[in-house]
Amino acid sequence: MAIAQNILDIAVAAAERGGAQKITRVNVVAGEMRAIVPPQLAFCFGVAAENTIASEAELNLEIVPVRGRCRGCGEDFAIKDFSYICPGCGGRDIEITGGTELRVRDIEVL
């Protein structure tokens, strides 16, 4: 719920800065690591957005898979099932390169 409220606040502030009357869509990029449950977030967003300029906005979530780079051999790979072990050399020193973000990318307004 706190996350939904933050998304709403960011979207409404951006819309007001841009002089928009109404938000139709909010595009959010969410890394898989953030364990966001899309229907639940959409529901919370809908509740938070009641009686605001985003009351009819659609919340669109783009889920980004977790990726890592092995500091040992440099291999770049998708981390599946949260296994932080390099498939190339078996190394455990992995730098996370994607999948931790949680950002409002843009909004569509009228």
């Binding site: 951006a14 819309a15 800065r17 928009a20 973000e101 950002r103 990318r105 909004i107």
Partner: peptide, 9 residues
């Protein structure tokens, strides 16, 4: 119209 935001939630 699209407005770029790019703000961390």
């Amino acid at each position: 119209m699209k407005i770029n935001v790019m703000t961390d939630v």
